[in-house]
């Protein structure tokens, strides 16, 4: 050991040893149960959360009031849902649309005029064909 520039109070080390030897009396060695207890507590808490979650899911999934809301009509539901298809909730609309005949030539011309196409343009296209 190298030269030590530090000192200690007189009889310090015998006093230190006496104090250190008393540590086992002050500190209780944790038993197997004491070591396992916090882990068991965490596992129990986790199981409780899973059990409560499962119970809530089962109750809500089996409840028709939650599964299919009778209070809301299909029309209201269709209004709530943003969709470009009117057939999603209105089956009648689909049937009516299917039954509609193809547009007549007059209806096509009216539509083209309303969108800004001139009669001359339409006639020019017909001549090209």
């Amino acid at each position: 050991m190298k030269q030590n520039p530090h000192t200690t109070p007189e009889a310090y080390f015998s006093d230190l040893k006496t104090r250190l030897r008393s540590i086992p009396e002050m500190q209780e060695v944790p038993t197997g149960w004491q070591r396992v207890r916090p882990h068991l507590a965490m596992a129990a808490a986790f199981l409780a959360i899973v059990a409560v979650g499962t119970a809530i899911l089962r109750n809500t999934a089996g409840n028709p009031a939650v599964a299919s809301p009778d209070s809301t009509s299909q029309y209201e539901l269709a209004q709530l849902v943003r969709t470009s298809s009117p057939y999603l909730y209105d089956e009648d609309a689909y049937t009516q649309e299917e039954e509609m005949s193809e547009p007549t030539e007059e209806e096509i011309i009216e539509y083209l005029i309303s969108t800004g196409v001139t009669i001359e343009n339409i006639e020019a296209d017909e001549t090209e064909d």
Binding site: N4, H6, T8, P9, F13, K17, R21
Partner: peptide, 27 residues
């Protein structure tokens, strides 16, 4: 464990004190 701990105290406490004293800089 009690006897083993007492052995550790007897064998190492003084040397261990000097080891940590170099880091704490105060008694």
């Amino acid at each position: 464990y009690n006897l083993a701990f007492n052995g550790i105290v007897d064998n190492y406490s003084e040397r261990l004190y000097w080891h940590v004293r170099r880091f704490t800089l105060s008694h």
